[in-house]
């Protein structure tokens, strides 16, 4: 049963130190900023964060990093024009980095959500990112063995949710949301508004309710004093 909440702090209750946290978003599109702000207040530390980027500007993931809560970042593209918070921490040796090709990052989480034990992937063969990994030739092509990435928590930025927990996304803000929602023990989505059950077209639902544990209704959160 999905809990629909208006209080960000209630939505983020109970996150343990040392958790692996999957955070959706590509740059700021689909980034669940209100959930990340609540995670900072909640106080969980020693986190491993899985996200495509390593934070932009000073808000969202960058603020979580600046608060010193992140032990390790797993991402495809940390270095951006506005990733100064991560850059500073990394160069000072204060955060670990695992760089994963973007499609492999998505597929490793897809595998976690789909119950796949590992998979052979052609991306990265012969490059430094395949160093130390098992490789295998299948039908004349070389592949690298990649393992799933499972989250303890996924924080998802979606567009609209219903009271059951079904989610729809908007344009390219969909990005990692649907995959991460499947790959974590506890999936928390922030949505711009919540509609009554039955109002979303079942043919248009992208993330089915089975994957969603808590929804933060931003329209209610913004309205709160």
């Amino acid at each position: 049963m999905t809990a629909v909440l208006g209080d960000p702090d209630e939505a983020l209750a109970g996150i343990a130190d040392g958790s692996t946290v999957l955070i959706s978003g590509f740059g700021m599109a689909g980034m669940p900023v209100r959930l990340i702000d609540a995670l900072i207040r909640q106080g969980a530390a020693d986190l491993t964060v899985v996200c495509n980027n390593a934070g932009n500007g000073d808000t969202g993931l960058a603020a979580l990093l600046a608060a010193g809560r992140v032990r390790k970042v797993i991402c495809s593209f940390p270095r951006q024009s506005d990733s100064w918070v991560f850059d500073g921490l990394y160069l000072a040796g204060k955060v670990e980095l695992e760089v994963v090709p973007q499609g492999t990052l998505a597929e490793r989480m897809r595998a976690a959500g789909a119950g796949i034990g590992a998979f052979y992937c052609p991306t990265g063969v012969g490059t430094p990112l395949a160093d130390g990994k098992e490789t295998r030739t299948i039908d004349g092509r070389d592949y690298v063995l990649e393992y799933p990435i499972k989250g303890d928590v996924a924080l998802i930025g979606a567009h609209i949710g219903d009271r059951m927990g079904n989610l729809v996304y908007r344009k390219t803000a969909r990005n990692f949301g649907p995959v991460m929602a499947t790959a974590a023990t506890l999936t928390i989505a922030q949505v711009r508004r919540v509609v009554e059950t039955g109002e979303l077209d079942p043919e248009a639902v992208v993330t089915p309710s089975i994957y969603v544990d808590r929804i933060l209704d931003l329209s209610e959160a913004e309205a709160a004093p």
Partner: peptide, 25 residues
Amino acid sequence: DLANWHTGAPGAIPAVGGAMDLATG
């Protein structure tokens, strides 16, 4: 062979994005 994601210079922060996936796929 293609090299386009990392200079390998000391202090350079590696960032691959989708480059390897595109090159391979």
